[in-house]
Design a protein around this nucleic acid. Structure first.
Lengths: 204, 204
DNA sequence: ACATTTGTTAACCAATTGGTTAAACTATTT
DNA sequence: AAATAGTTTAACCAATTGGTTAACAAATGT
């Protein structure tokens, strides 16, 4: 058999396969055998490298979360204005999620199933922190740059407008009668649409 | 044994138990035995009344969807202006979901897992229809009442801002560092906050 | 060359799961 | 009250599932 390089060794083969299965089927719907098949290896190897389904799942989850968190963080903590942050975030985040469409749904779904799970994430560094954003919103409100709004509500709105379409895709597609290409087009539009919508609402 | 009335007969006991288990654990995570235990009856009864796990699940899903759909429909199809629709929807929908917190997540999650499933829902009457809303948005845009926006995008925005906080509750709670009572308070605020946010953005 | 560690496999195992069955119990009909 | 139809139960079943084991193969070190 051909020698594997670092990107094709068994351990990462397993992680990649597990990622794909867990993210589409969830913890409960995923089967160890299916993960092994997709990785092209024996089921016993899953346990050799990750001990149990739970630990393999946690490895996948942490991996996914650590991909998502920096996207939030960079926007929250850079030095641009609120307006610039909103524009950057909407454009970047929608592009990012379009490349990882299962990510937000996976994370949100599994956190709903096991809310204690996020506590482990909070301990790790790189967990998104809202402090700077909060102060910035308060300052811009005080200076009359944007209308009065609580940072938390604004943050929820930004997240909602950007993330929801990906999570609720099957529902939305049917409600607005859009096929796959219609939907892609609408998502593409939203890279600026969402930012404009938010700015219009908060700009004085 | 005491005679059961219509609200306590076995069939609806099962449906209630199944609702509670399926909505918190999902199709894959739910166990027939657990549903039977919660209903206080023998597991064989589940099959006697609903034949299989799949059919029991579909009964629960249709039931849930038929609760949610009219909420969308009444707002989409009444005779008020877009602004009134937005205000009504935000207030009513948030109140409604606050009473059925697992509903949107359940529906969205299971539709993601099984996208074909919504086709069955579409056939049934009462499936939300956007036609009237679309025309109305176009008219109000043409008349200069609201800013230029596509009805589909506005609809997605309304849905996102109202529904997302419930779906992403565990994530949001941790990102903004809110305990249960903080979160309830923020949700309460959103009954007007969301409507104002949308109106601010689209009103000329 | 040999021994030891690391990686891999096929076969196996106990527990769980959705579903069935046959018998018992209860109400309804005649 | 006897027969019939509908409801409920305990015990059972085959299939699936996560996980283990023991033997085998491939590196690695000495």
């Amino acid at each position: 058999m051909i020698k594997n390089n670092k990107n094709e060794n068994t351990e990462s083969l397993i992680l990649e396969a597990a990622k794909s299965i867990f993210q589409t089927k969830g913890m409960d719907g995923a089967r160890m055998q299916e993960i092994a098949d997709q990785a092209g290896i024996n089921k016993a190897m899953l346990h050799y490298y990750y001990r149990s389904k739970q630990l393999l799942f946690e490895a996948v989850f942490k991996n996914a979360f650590s991909l998502l968190a920096p996207q939030l963080n960079t926007v929250l903590n850079d030095d641009s204005s609120i307006e610039e942050k909103v524009r950057n975030f909407s454009s970047n985040y929608i592009s990012f999620i379009a490349e990882h469409p299962y990510l937000p749904n996976f994370i949100i779904q599994e956190l709903n199933r096991n809310p204690d799970f996020i506590l482990k994430m909070k301990e790790s560094n790189g967990f998104p922190n809202l402090e700077k954003f909060k102060k910035q919103v308060d300052v811009e409100v005080a200076n009359g740059i944007i209308k009065k709004i609580k940072a938390e509500q604004l943050f929820i709105n930004i997240l909602a407008l950007n993330v929801f379409p990906f999570i609720a895709k099957p529902l939305i597609q049917n409600l607005i009668d859009a096929d796959e290409s219609d939907f892609q087009h609408i998502i593409e539009e939203r890279k600026t649409e969402v930012a404009d919508f938010i700015i219009n609402s908060i700009k004085k």
